[in-house]
Design a protein around this nucleic acid. Structure first.
Lengths: 360, 360
DNA sequence: CTGAAAGCGCTAACAC
DNA sequence: GTGTTAGCGCTTTCAG
């Protein structure tokens, strides 16, 4: 690996001159600079960033921690963050903390050892798992910003959606088109999900609708969703609508409803939350709440970079709240009238038997 | 930021003793070690990896370059690679080269400056865009392995699927269930796509089926797919099956067919390629060719790490080929008999008008 | 404008 | 066992 010294020898100057030339320093003879740059290029010289980083005490890289990248929500933020970071001249160190978040602390510790300039943490859990690590980070002056609302973290920068508001809008929409027996499905532990559910319930209550135990399904995996849907359909009074806390779950709900030969939205309304690209692929297209991931990501990295640039002038912790909007698509309609679901035959794999038929 | 020196002072020993203690060196008094480790922990000491890296001339980091992370194929490889890398004790530097791949060279150069121990490159294009960079990398002894088949790169390690074989299996399956007017849709420039198409065509030819110009649609974006599907349906003799080169495109095809009130697979068979998780979500579930992404990723990082560990003993360039398998699901069926598509009314947003109806 | 020198924080001979 | 010393490759005063 060729070093500054090497090309200094080639050029017959000192290594500090080369350093200046390559850094485009103004206090250097333009001719020398030109000559050195050419020489360095020809020799295939590449700065050793690790040496440089050690000297300048900055790595120009930001660490991004996301739980995983299989749930389509996260890739979207990874992509946006990566693009923004690159644009701002930062490299990206990606850490996947794992679904159970046990590894969150390790991720942060590792990022810290690498001396990243700042950390973006998307936590999957409602609470901050690696609290100690984050506090230590803060104490040592490394900027960190959280994505999604986190409990007891008022002193930490974060950007989040007003999920509560989104949830209540969604509920009002369903109520508006006539639903009153509405099931909810998902798992509260997940990111921001607590709030959306809170808003949803609040709106129901406001309308005098009770959410019985029967209608609350806890599910995250494909198989759990399947069981949940089956159980809902088997109820004496099945719901006319299902609210899945996340689009990815809504997709599964629709899949299992279709497999069970139920038409969405004619026989069952399904709504989600997040407005993933996925929501527009589904058939029918999913009614959901748009999280404005773009805005989130933008504020997310802007805030971090701002913190990095002027680590001194602290304006106090920022809590940026982004208002989501309701996106009405084909997956919701008025409740069906007849109460026949409970009596119908259930075809686990019956989608081929009851796919759309056209007799025009 | 607290350094080795700091805790050396605290412990009243030299900094090298501290280094040894923390590294768990055998040639140190167990008591001292214990004492120092405790002290370091209490002081919240974290090694400065950038200093360490400079000294040991290795970063324990691998660079992963993927075009983007929105197409669900890539997140899957990112996740697998990240997990494997972590397991092997490597950090991950993620670089998104962008769809147009113009940035591929920049990504590699950046990774090289960072002195990553090795690079995993998933190229989106059929050819190697950043050829010069890769050659330079190779010349300077930094291991790199390519994912997906790349032209004129016999001297570079790579792992790829036998897409040609997958393509022909797919074609034979379609032929076997009676199709002969088959359309293809996608864009050849994309990763590995050339081969799958090659195999597909070869199998058609073998069966004496001609693929007319009409039936070949070039499309990547949603809108292009829509136009393509519309054009196919408007043909005097529309196809009875559509092969989309990638599952993500197949998803769009199904969406637009459904929007156009066509039942899959009753009125149109659709098949894809990749076997993304997505394929199982779609309704109907997509027949596709499984790329064994898991195996790919495993060999991908194993090979790289092997190269990193013993950079000397080169066994010559490795080309690992993984055989895909056909996954038959609900999206394909026998060709419909009547030739009515051309005459039917086309409802651009008509999915609600013709969603499944059940009159049992 | 350019060179000499110091040192970022760490590891690894080499002494003792 | 432990301390001393010499760098890893770079930036950046400080002199000239």
């Amino acid at each position: 690996m060729i070093t500054l010294q090497d090309i200094a020898r080639l050029a017959g100057v000192s290594h500090s001159t080369v350093s200046r030339a390559l850094a485009g320093s103004p206090l250097i003879n333009p001719d020398t600079r030109q000559r050195i740059q050419l020489l360095a290029h020809e020799a295939g010289y590449q700065v050793n960033q690790v040496a440089r980083n050690l000297k300048v005490r900055s790595t120009c890289t930001i660490g991004l921690v996301v739980p995983e990248v299989l749930n389509p929500y996260y890739p979207k933020v990874v992509q946006l963050v990566a693009d923004l970071a690159r644009e701002a001249g930062y490299n990206l160190q990606l850490q996947l903390s794992g679904a159970d978040q046990k590894a969150e602390a390790t991720c942060i510790a590792s990022l810290r050892e690498q001396r990243v300039d700042g950390i973006l943490l998307v936590t999957a859990e409602h609470g901050l798992v690696a609290r100690d690590q984050v506090e230590a980070l803060l104490a040592s002056g490394v900027p960190i910003v959280l994505m999604g609302w986190v409990e007891d973290a008022e002193h930490i920068d974060m950007v989040m959606g007003d999920d509560s508001k989104g949830g209540s809008e969604l509920a009002r929409h369903l109520i508006g088109i006539g639903h009153s027996r509405i099931a909810i499905l998902g798992k509260t532990a997940h990111r921001g999900v607590y709030d959306r559910l809170f808003g949803f319930r609040a709106a129901l209550e406001e309308a005098g609708i009770v959410l019985s135990e029967d209608l609350q399904i806890e599910a995250t995996s494909d198989i759990e969703v399947k069981r949940g849907v089956t159980r809902l359909l088997a109820l004496p009074a099945p719901p006319t609508a299902i609210f899945a806390y996340q689009d990815s779950l809504a997709a599964l709900v629709i899949k299992h409803l279709t497999d069970a030969c139920l038409a969405v939205p004619q026989e069952m309304t399904v709504v989600g939350f997040d407005d993933l690209d996925l929501a527009a692929y589904l058939c029918p297209h999913l009614t959901t709440v748009g999280g404005h991931i773009e805005s989130h990501a933008f504020r997310f990295v802007s805030l971090l970079i701002e913190r990095i640039r002027k680590a001194s002038s602290d304006t106090g912790p920022q809590h940026i709240v982004i208002t989501p909007r309701l996106v009405v698509r084909g997956s919701c309609g008025p409740p069906r009238k007849e109460e026949t679901i409970g009596n119908r035959r259930y075809h686990p794999n019956g989608y081929t038997q009851c796919a759309p038929t056209h007799t025009d």
